[in-house]
């Protein structure tokens, strides 16, 4: 696979704070690459280094064969960026913004296509400040993709969107990928990473903790769990079963994390049937990146 971004041993210091420590990863052409982590993990800093806005303190970064901070103008012709906390002029109308940003690029833009795709036609004469959050995101997404960028950087694209707008945003992002862009997206919504990304880099306090497809991350990292409701079960019994890693317990609800859900379920059900223990709920639950994340953070605390 052709790589479009390669990061080797990247570090970034702000004074004495080491925001990024020895980060390495590669992004391949045509994938949706997620960078996830809690707030303050270094996601935005990483993105800004890739975009050439921020200069790395150490390590090598190559984006589309360019050194981002040194060849920024060349890079800007090929990439599109949707920032987390930027705005366009409040009194600028949508139509004017699209026109203006189109004039920044040489050659034709896909403005009309994007207007239809994002449904902006009805909002063309509305000032940016009068748009709702979801529409603002659409407009800034349009501005970032006018020139059909080879790489599209999205910093928390679904922040502040309601669930249905978020799903729409995901399908738009997938569509842009299908039209040939590579997409790098940061998020702290684990669900977003699971649903949207082909591969996910998990960053915590400036270090890479895991990097894989969401499915593989989940398969390796998180034991799936059984959610059981019962007033009569004991935690000690559950922990004594083979293959059980840990048990979370809150009032009548148990979460049993285990290697093999079916075997553990068999043990529990047989035991309860024999002893006459009453179960009021029994469910197979898939682990999520959220669980994985919590697990990593806990390991961090213990280690």
């Amino acid at each position: 696979m052709e790589s479009v971004i390669s990061v080797k041993n990247l570090s970034k210091n702000f004074g004495v704070t080491r925001a990024i420590k020895n980060l390495s990863f590669t992004v391949y052409k045509g994938e949706i690459f997620g960078i996830i982590g809690p707030n303050g993990a270094g996601k935005t800093t990483t993105l800004e280094i890739l975009e050439g806005i921020s200069v790395p303190s150490g390590g090598d970064v190559e984006v589309l064969g360019l050194n981002p901070s040194k060849q920024l103008r060349e890079l800007n012709k090929k990439i599109g960026v949707q920032f987390q906390a930027t705005s366009i002029q409040k009194k600028m109308k949508v139509k004017e913004a699209l026109d203006l940003f189109s004039s920044f690029y040489e050659g034709p833009t896909q403005k009309d296509y994007l207007i239809d795709l994002l449904g902006l036609r009805e909002k063309m004469n509305v000032k940016f400040d009068d748009l709702s959050g979801g529409w603002k995101q659409r407009v800034t997404l349009a501005l970032a993709t006018l020139h059909e960028p080879e790489i599209l950087f999205l910093d928390e694209p679904s922040m502040g969107l309601d669930p249905s707008a978020r799903r729409e945003m995901w399908s738009l992002i997938r569509l842009l990928r299908d039209r040939g862009s590579t997409i790098v997206v940061t998020t702290h919504y684990m669900e977003e990473a699971e649903q949207l990304c082909d591969r996910v880099a998990m960053i915590y306090s400036g270090q890479l903790k895991a990097l894989d497809t969401p499915r593989d991350l989940l398969n390796e990292g998180v034991a799936d769990c059984l959610a059981i409701n019962s007033a009569e079960l004991s935690r000690e019994y559950l922990l004594s079963l083979p293959g059980v890693e840990r048990v979370e317990h809150e009032q009548d609800e148990f979460k049993v994390y285990c290697d093999d859900q079916q075997t553990t379920a068999y043990h529990i059900l047989t035991h309860c049937q024999e002893k006459g223990i009453r179960l009021t709920g029994f469910k197979f639950e898939k682990g999520s990146l959220d669980d994985l994340f919590v697990q990593y953070l806990e390991k961090e605390k213990i280690g």
């Binding site: 975009e51 103008r73 920032f83 930027t86 002029q89 920044f104 040489e106």
Partner: peptide, 17 residues
Amino acid sequence: NYRETGVLRRYQSTPLQ
């Protein structure tokens, strides 16, 4: 004001000089 609200920041990632 543009510097504070990120308007210029937005321009920074375009070829505009």
